[in-house]
Design a binder for these strands. Structure first.
Length: 275
DNA sequence: CTTAACGCCTGAAGGC
DNA sequence: TGCCTTCAGGCGTTAA
């Protein structure tokens, strides 16, 4: 379930492996992820394109080609890229695409649940996905005043507000739980009731948790892998996520509680995270 | 305008 | 053992 640190790890992995390569062909095993574009058109669009750079925007991956064209990828829940420098045939059950480069190396796109998306853009087209994206947590404009203004009319819980990619882009269920625990904010608290002090703490926690998670190559709970097939290590540093019933690492008295918010599990400590 | 539920998918895990 | 239900949670769409 890639969130910002996992996507960042993947982008770094792609930057180490496929920059300057030219796409020769794309093998397509599943067209649903192409967003309505036919396999034939997808291949024609990409054939001969040379990779200039790879960037992250929220949880999106932006692949820029030297021609000015680009491709926007979202991995959703189970998407992953695996690089195969020696062109070995990888027997992965869930391979949906294989990018074949002119130097014979391969980039596999695997996706168990087929939620991932690939969108192609000509240089003139505006990237729709980015239009509604909120601030990146590492953007210098992601400030206390800005966040305060953005949430002062929000009646929903702070947890659900932080999951809204149109406000802050990059957080998902795991990191939101971790961030709120570190900032000692109750996940069900209405976003509009947070004080300036809370918001300061929140921004600090967001940046700290994400930075630390990037340093550890992300979190592997189920099956996250980098481009080199290595797992992340941040799961060892999770304090509340998936720890229902375990004793809180901060107060050491209360056990971690699990509730549902908007159909998703929330983990928190009722003592350390006051209403 | 806002907020919230549903659907998309597969496979693992739990209940009986 | 085996079938059925639930859960995992990203986001676009739809409904209220």
């Amino acid at each position: 379930m890639p969130e910002l640190p996992e996507v960042e790890t993947i982008v770094q992995g792609l930057n180490k492996t496929i920059i300057d390569k030219t796409i020769h062909h794309v093998e397509i095993f599943h067209t649903k992820i192409l967003g309505g574009v036919s396999g034939k058109r997808f291949i024609e669009f990409l054939a001969g394109e040379k990779i200039l750079s790879i960037k992250r925007r929220g949880k999106y991956i932006l692949i820029l080609f030297t021609s000015g064209k680009s491709m926007v990828v979202h991995l959703r829940m189970t998407g992953k890229f695996i690089y195969s420098p020696l062109a070995e045939k990888l027997n992965h059950k869930h391979t949906r695409l294989v990018f074949k480069f002119t130097d014979k190396s391969l980039l596999y796109y695997n996706d168990l649940r087929i939620f991932g998306t690939f969108r192609l853009y000509t240089p003139q087209q505006e990237i729709m996905e980015f239009k509604k994206l909120g601030k990146d947590p590492f953007d210098s404009q992601f400030t206390v005043n800005w966040l305060k203004q953005s949430i002062e009319r929000k009646t929903s819980s702070i947890k659900n507000v932080l999951l809204d990619q149109g406000i802050v882009s990059g957080l998902g269920n795991i990191y939101v739980c971790e961030v709120l625990f570190r900032a000692k904010i109750h996940p069900q608290r209405a976003a509009s009731t947070l004080t300036t002090e809370h918001i300061k703490l929140l921004i600090g926690s967001i940046r700290m948790v994400l930075k630390q998670a990037i340093k550890h190559n992300g979190t592997t709970i189920n099956d996250f892998q980098g481009v080199d097939e290595k797992t992340g290590q941040f799961q060892k540093l999770l304090k509340v996520y998936d720890r229902e019933g375990e004793s809180c690492l901060l107060c050491k008295k209360q056990s971690i509680v699990r509730i549902k918010q908007a159909q998703r599990s929330t983990f928190y400590c009722p003592i350390c995270q006051k209403e």
